[in-house]
Amino acid sequence: MAEHLEKGKEAEWLAKEWLENKGYEFIEANYRYKHAEIDLIFTHKGIMVFVEVKFRSGTGYGYAEEFVDFRKRQLIIRAADHYIHEKDWHRDIRFDIVGVYRDRNGSIAFRHFEDAFY
């Protein structure tokens, strides 16, 4: 597997663990619909939360949330729409972005953007 894909999968796992520790209930990872993928799906306080995870080794090229462009948001929304119909979900939903940052010393930090788009 390419190094950037391995880092992405590691970041998803770290974000999953971090969100679970914050009280989020994990439902599914890497849900695919056509050309779209939702990294992580949780429920939290009665809301289904679709999470896009972005890994960055520093912020020299920008923050994670800056890399979820219009096209990516549209793909995630389309996949989420399919998912909620497939699961017959009739409650609220939310789209979050979690940035996973590793500094030069290997320390991990998270930035969580709740209700980041729709």
Rank of each mutant, 00 (worst) to 15 (best):
I41Y: 09
V98G: 01
V98M: 01
V68Q: 02
L19D: 01
Y118W: 12
K34I: 13
D69Y: 11
D69W: 10
M48L: 15
V51R: 06
D103I: 06
Q74Y: 08
A79V: 00
A29L: 10
D103T: 09
I76Q: 04
E28Q: 09
T43W: 08
T43I: 11
A15F: 06
F42K: 01
I27C: 09
E52G: 05
R73C: 09
W13Y: 15
K9H: 10
E25W: 07
M1T: 10
E10L: 15
R71S: 12
K54A: 07
V68C: 00
Y101N: 11
R94F: 05
G8R: 08
E12A: 08
I47K: 07
H82L: 03
Y118A: 10
I27R: 12
A79E: 02
A116Y: 08
D39G: 02
D115R: 08
G99H: 04
K22R: 06
S107T: 13
F117S: 02
E66M: 10
Y83G: 01
E25F: 11
R91K: 13
N30K: 09
E86P: 03
F67G: 12
D92G: 09
D81S: 14
V49S: 08
H35W: 13
T59L: 15
W13H: 13
T43E: 15
F67D: 03
I108R: 05
H90T: 11
Y31F: 14
D96P: 09
R91C: 06
I97Y: 03
Y83S: 00
N30M: 04
I108E: 02
D103C: 04
F110M: 09
R111S: 12
K9C: 03
W13R: 14
